[in-house]
Each structure stands twice: as C-alpha cells, then as structure tokens.
Design a binder for these strands. Structure first.
Lengths: 196, 196
DNA sequence: AGAGTAACCGAACGATCGGTCGGGACAAGG
DNA sequence: CCTTGTCCCGACCGATCGTTCGGTTACTCT
C-alpha cells in the first residue's frame, strides 16, 4: 500500500495545484510566481519537480486527452447500433468531464500559442471527428434525423457537453454527474431521434 | 455620407484588428507588440488612439454585451407566450453571435483577472438569468417539459448556442447564420417541448 | 508662408516574465 | 561520524511586459 501521508510534492500533486490556478487565471495569465504562492513553495522549488510551466500544461492536457480517447475503446462505444454507441459516448463524456474536470477544462481552452497547445488541439480534433463519424453512421442507419447536417449537429452536441466546464461544480452536485448525463441525453436525443 | 477612404486608424478600426488578435492568441497571450505588428503601426502609436490594452478589451466586451441585451428589448422577446419569446431570443442570440462574432467570442472567454473582466462576467450572468427566467416561465405555462431542471436546461441551451464562437466561420457559410438558428431551435426545442 | 494638429515613430522606463544557480536543511544508510 | 540524495530556498539572469516620452513627419487652415 502507498503511505497516506503526503507532506511533500510530487509532479502529480503539484500538477493538481497548478491546473486549478491555470483554470482560474488562464494559462497565459498565470505566472510561476502565482503557482508558487498557491503551492506554498518558492518559485525555484517548482523546478525541482517539473521542467517548467509548459510541462505542467502538457501533463494536464495529456491526462484529459487520455480520458476522452479511453471512451472510444470501451465495449459500449464499439458494439451495437451507432445510435446506442453515440449515446454511450455522450454519457461517458459527461462522466470524464466531471471526474477530470480541471484537466479537461484546460484542454478545452488552449489557444495554440505553443507547440504543446497545437498538439493538444490536433488530438482534440481527432476525437471530435471520431464522434462525428458515429453520428453520421446513426443517421445512415436511420436512427437519427437527417434534416440537420451531421457536422453541425455534432458541433452543437459537443457544445452542450463541453459547456460543463463552464458551470459544473462537483461540490454542488452528486460528483458523478449521472443526472447531468441524463439531461444531456434527453435534451439532445429527443431532438435528434426520428419521431417514435 | 462618410468617406469610404480610410487610410488611418480610428479607435473603432483599431479595435477590429485588436479583437481578432485577442481571439487568436488569447487576451493575456497578446502583447502590445503583437498588436502593433498586426495593425502595421508602431507600439507607441496605438496609444495615440486608445488609452491602453484594457480599454480595447472594455470596448470589445461592451459591444458584445450591448448586442445581447438589445435582444431582450425587442418586441419578440417581450410579447407572447414564454416559449415563443424563448425561441425568438434563441434565434436572435445566434444572429448576434454570428454578426458580432469576434466581440462575443472575447466576452465568452474573459477569466476575471481585472476589474473590466469581472464587470463583463457580471453583466453576462445578468443576461443568463433573464433567459433562465424565460425558460422557467415556459415550463410553468406547460409548453416545455419540466422533468429537466430549468437551470440545467438553460445552461445546456447556452452551451449549444455559445459554442458557435468555437467553430462558426462567416466566410464558410451564409453570414447571417439563419440555417444555424434553425438547427439550434430544432435540436433544442424538439427535445424540450412536450411531445405533440 | 506660417501655425496648428493629427498620426506616427524609436528609445527607453520600471516591472514582471520564465528560468537558472549555488547552496542550506534534513533524513537515511553506512 | 560522514556521505548521499531529496527538497527547498534567496538571489539573480536576460527577455519581454505595458506604458511613457520627446520628437518628426505630413496635411489643413488661414
């Protein structure tokens, strides 16, 4: 077992602090001085644990990306009708957004100023395309209405889901976000499904 | 008539350039040097037209806020059943987002680091509450389903609409965004309305 | 021609940026 | 006791930040 006592920083525990500050002030708006105050150690001590500011960003967005792509490997995202796989991905996206909230928040806000940010944006675009293909298949299989363009519908669906990072606070709700996943599915799919 | 010739900057034309750079690099990620390169004049010349970087931000978000609050004063947002007023506001929000895209984009991304940013966030919260009240009324009048919490539904609706700033490019579509407004209404309301 | 002014510029300001450096405190292992 | 390595620090680095200042164009008005 690992010791519960944690009186010193590791790259991971330091990352948790940094990501929170990044989300409050924005990545560019956060200085190493801000991070040192929040972590309670000196600016130079941060460099004992990580190589620099950009490594913190890279670690954070990597964690978010891994969480999202992990969804696509789950059985529920690979087997069955496209519409059911899409609903599964939708629910699990809400799950990942809520459980990895600060990391995904950071991912969704990168602007592409550095190589790390551009890499993150590209991976994110890959994920979006994978989900868009799922939605197209569901239309082709006749389970989703085709009068709204697939790419547009995907973007609006992502807009709904990704907006969680703007308002979801785990301490104010059940932390698993099950009721939110229900609401998203209700709102999105009752509008997308062919009338029953 | 105003002369079409514009060989020198005004605060407004300079603002248009600045807002574009702000949106590409982020406000904090944009230096006055970046702005001067984009505008084609020297850094110090910018201060001949505006008081500083923050004034550019204030002008931009003010323009966005005025556009959004203007919607609430329109007859379509003040008369008729709540559900119809809500649909009108939804369509007009898409209209304002598309026509004032860079300014609204900037508004939706402020993080609250300065007094100007906190003021913008507060005004935005006011607007959100006004729309949330509209949605609550529509539920009370029996036109929208009540099994999804009103505040949650509002946030998801805003998530859909506001996501436009992440992907809408006026040069790639009809610049008025009418088809997008249709899609948003279809997706959101066919899921929100009581089954007919 | 001369005065006034709008538009602009290069150089420099103090402050802060991300990051480096040499070393101190302290616990573990011999 | 002495070494070794972890964790941390204050002081400092060159670069860049937003902003200021003194001065130079170039056009308008009289």
């Amino acid at each position: 077992m690992t010791t519960a006592k944690r009186d010193t920083y590791t790259p991971e525990t330091l990352l948790a602090v940094a990501v929170q500050v990044f989300n409050e002030r924005g990545y560019d708006g956060t200085s190493m001085e801000h991070l040192s105050k929040a972590a309670g150690i000196s600016k130079s001590s941060i460099y004992h644990h990580v190589a620099g500011k950009e490594e913190l960003l890279r670690r954070a967005v990597s964690r978010a990306i891994d969480g999202l792509f992990g969804i696509l490997d789950e059985p529920g995202a690979r087997e069955g009708r496209a519409v059911d796989r899409l609903e599964h991905v939708t629910r699990r996206m809400v799950g990942v957004l809520t459980s990895e909230l600060p990391y995904v928040t950071l991912l969704l806000r990168v602007r592409g100023n550095t190589e790390t940010e551009r890499w993150a944006m590209e991976r994110r675009r890959d994920f979006d395309h994978r989900v868009a293909d799922l939605l197209k298949s569901a239309i082709a299989e006749g389970d989703l209405r085709g009068d709204v363009e697939a790419r547009l519908a995907t973007r609006l669906l992502f807009g709904m889901i990704n907006s969680l990072v703007e308002w979801f606070r785990p301490e104010a709700r059940g932390a698993d976000g099950a009721e939110i996943a229900d609401a998203v599915v209700q709102l999105a799919f009752r509008g997308l499904r062919v009338e029953d």
